[in-house]
Nucleic acid binder design. Structure first.
Lengths: 360, 360
DNA sequence: ATTAGCACTCATTTTTCAAGAGTGCTAATA
DNA sequence: TATTAGCACTCTTGAAAAATGAGTGCTAAT
């Protein structure tokens, strides 16, 4: 608003100190503590005055008259913003990289071991993150946009059943078995294969509109209804392939934080993680808000998921070469270790890209 | 042991009454309550004496001197055994069927609506069960035994990649893409297809032993290593197809039962449900113990999963026509409504069979 | 064999009290 | 004018004490 910053330097230092200590201890922090903690060389009385100001400005509150202060969402927001802008320049502090080196190595090793499917990989990522951070985590499958059909291959299975193998760009493969009302011959299948592939190959889902479909139905002549059935299956399958899946892990980590572990809050949270339905909001918000870093921090009420208003959520977008995007999220208490979490997510984001290149 | 039953009729009645009331209230039940509850027309003092006997025999305990009694595992076991033997004759009480009729209808409707994949169906079953019973639930994918290979189909994807579509009996289909070190021609693929299918079709996993593999390697001549690679992929894929998947739901229902919701117990339980790893014990135990009814009740310490020793678990085997077997489990507090749970599971077991026939 | 009566036990709840942490305000100080 | 020391006051926390009440075990009466 004003062009002078709202907080002078001393207030900033004090606020930072308050939040730092609160993150570490989880207890309201008093003026005496700060007066010792900082190198400001100020008495507790002075700090008290400053803290009263900070309270007026809405950065901190005291839970009751004779307690220390705890940060408000606004306070956390200040802290995180400051942190993010510092991190942008430095990208990753030497010591942090050092410290996380081992983690990454361990992760790589673990991931390379028994991973033959992307979903297993993602599940493992969730699990590892949960273990390393002590927060709850979620990881989504990558979402493709503008999926192109590479080819379709029909095969008779006998018994009036036909197997359609649908291959999309990026070698994403889906199967669909369907029953016909009557037995189908080898020639018919051959014909259908040719018809489907000459018309559809290279098209995106959006391009398979009504006009193309009805044209194909005409060309198929007597097999019109059959073609329609197959097309529907294809469309549905492609849509399904794009179906968002969410893996979560470490839900019970929330019991490590007293402010979240009273049973009603905990129950609600775990439910949300278990049902996964509501987590899609998180993903949407994450994919839309494209800041440069690919990292998004939601503090308390800011989070797009109703049931998580007592938590903070940090999300990261990971992106594969083909423009497939997915989301990783970390859910913890407001007083989470933002610095470590953001750092870890930045690392994972990068690593994940490399790993996917190895997997097909 | 002795040929006279350990409990005379009066003791049985009283024990039954104690357990019944305890199931309903969750509080230790005292002698006065029982003296009113039963039609035995006995004073509380008499009941007190009988209860003291029951305590000596290990069917009940009092949590402290001046409290009522609660059932021990042995007590529950008696209760459940009695119930199961009664149910075997009656199969399903008229009123229960009536009462559950609506549930089943609702379920069928829901399941038929948006279910196009077996795994979604099973997930929904878990969810519905959890909602209807207020306990935590798990459902496994059906396990096949002696999976036979129907055929394999290799297709070039270009870019040194080959798609293998593996079709098993029961039209279970898996895909696997793999990279070769060098480009592969159309003829080579054709040859490989023929070689693979003439040799392998109709074989189970167990039959693909070393002698067959090395024989094929020889026949393939220069493509030996290639064939080996493909075979490995096939074997792995089939094993993977048989990979047990477990869906859980309603984990947070455990918060409805105070005896389970202190945070360490709850955390451990939810973890187990989330990780799913340990639940396989449950499945194994369920599939092995083949009693006539297909229903198995584990009380407290009896359960094959360590972390669930404060719970009771009821499992049911469902079986599809092709001999595929899966497990449904309900996890709740010791004082769960065994009668309702067993009844519901019996119904679901039957319904599920019908539904699978509809799905492919 | 059953029951009434009574003393006793122990968990639970409520009340009371003391300790401690931290604040806000005022007056003194540099 | 900005800082600090000092003090009264507030409110949480924890422990101890007291009251409540449900339920038992035992004895003596029926």
């Amino acid at each position: 608003m004003a062009d002078t910053p709202e907080l002078d330097e001393r207030k900033e230092t004090i606020l930072h100190a308050v939040i730092d200590t609160y993150l570490a201890t989880g207890e309201p922090v008093g003026s005496r503590t700060i007066s010792k903690y900082t190198d400001l060389k100020l008495s507790s009385a002075t700090i008290r005055n400053e803290m009263a100001d900070l309270e007026d400005m809405g950065y901190v509150v005291s839970p009751h008259t004779s307690a220390g202060r705890i940060p408000t969402d606004k306070g956390y927001r200040f802290y995180v913003n400051q942190m993010m802008s510092v991190m942008k320049d430095i990208n990753a502090r030497e010591e942090d990289v050092q410290e996380r080196e081992q983690e990454v190595q361990e992760m790589k090793k673990f991931l390379n071991e028994k991973v033959d499917r992307v979903d297993t990989l993602l599940q493992n990522v969730a699990k590892l993150l949960a273990n390393n951070t002590n927060y709850a985590t979620m990881v989504t499958t990558p979402q493709m946009s503008g999926n192109k059909l590479k080819f379709v291959q029909l095969t008779a299975l006998g018994d009036k059943k036909v197997l359609a193998v649908i291959v999309m760009d990026g070698n994403l493969i889906r199967n669909k078995v369907f029953d016909f009302s009557e037995e189908i011959t080898q020639e018919q299948i051959l014909k259908l294969n040719i018809l489907l592939n000459t018309t559809l190959n290279g098209l995106t889902l959006e391009q398979m509109n009504m006009s193309i479909i009805s044209k194909m139905e005409q060309q198929a002549g007597p097999h019109g209804p059959l073609v329609r059935e197959i097309l529907n299956a294809i469309v549905e399958t492609i849509q399904n392939a794009d179906h968002l899946q969410i893996y979560t892990s470490g839900a019970t980590n929330i019991f490590k934080y007293p402010e979240l572990s009273d049973s009603s809050t905990a129950s609600e949270l775990i439910s949300t993680l278990e049902e996964k339905q509501m987590l899609t909001n998180l993903v949407k918000a994450d994919l839309e808000g494209d800041n440069e870093t690919g990292i998004q921090v939601y503090i308390g009420e800011e989070t797009p998921v109703e049931t998580m208003k007592d938590c903070s959520v940090v999300t990261a977008t990971y992106e594969l070469q083909d423009g497939m995007k997915g989301t990783i999220g970390i859910i913890g208490p407001r007083r989470m270790d933002y610095e470590k979490v953001v750092g870890t997510l930045k690392t994972i984001r990068t690593e994940l890209d490399g790993m996917f290149k190895k997997q097909s």
